[in-house]
Amino acid sequence: MSTSALACTGLVKSFGDVRALDGVTVDVTAPATGLLGANGAGKSTLMKLALGLLAPDDGEVRVLGLDAATDRAQIRARVGYMPEHACLPTDMSAQDLCIHLARLRGLPRRDALRRASEVLFAVGLEEERHRLVDTYSLGMRQRAKLAQALVHGPDLVVLDEPTSGLDPAGRAEMLSILRHLSRDLGIQVLLSSHVLEDVERTCDEVVVLSSGRVTAQQPVAARDSAGPVVVQVTGDASTFAAGLRARDVPADADGGRVRLAAATPAALTAVRDLAAETGVGVLSLVDAANALEDAVVGAMR
């Protein structure tokens, strides 16, 4: 198990009468963890407390085992941050920006130059690194933001809505890079998003926040391609399930749907053949083990 990226105990933070975090206690140890929650759930507040941008009213925050209140300098050296909002100086090139931030973070000039080239290559900006940030598309700006977060070789990167505003292709590429960070480079990732699919594709664990409280924390299990499935048919579900059982396929009617215990090739062939023989339409055939989505939706209510 990895080092605890973020450990909070009884964390409370209010803004006026609004209690943004209400006694949050959580221990984040997975290589990549997604923070999920609706707008106003407390995700950004939790991240800002971890980054030292806000001070808690009560409770304790530890980042990489260090006290967020007293060990700020050590935390700064080991953490990278990609904010959701525009945060890049528009009159600098991505190369200059990465070198500049690497120097501020204590890297010698030669190392800063080398690291800037490496991270810009890693995020796919090597060809455009000398252009001013002002001339970048939104996708390129997101990449530049990620590059600066990685330039000093952090142990933990905090990413606030990294796919925000990206087109589908840009989003897929960004998610692929993020998965690469935790899986191949050993960098712990804490990602805030309100898109479950982004978290499923990049994270090992999900923490759900709702109204300032942690309402769920569970692993993101890899989907089993031969796991249980639910079939929705146009005819009577009980009759269809009985027909499948007659073909030695374990199946039960569940309300208006038919639940198959395993989506083996033989079972799927039986569904197809039975539907064709009886003239029943198959409306949908979906993974029944979508426990994460159910849990997240339930936890966000």
Partner: peptide, 18 residues
């Protein structure tokens, strides 16, 4: 003013310097 306008400060103060 430039860095406040570009909203770079949260980046500086969280990962670079006090």
């Amino acid at each position: 003013t430039r860095e406040r306008r570009d909203r770079v400060l949260s980046l500086y103060f969280s990962t670079a310097m006090s």
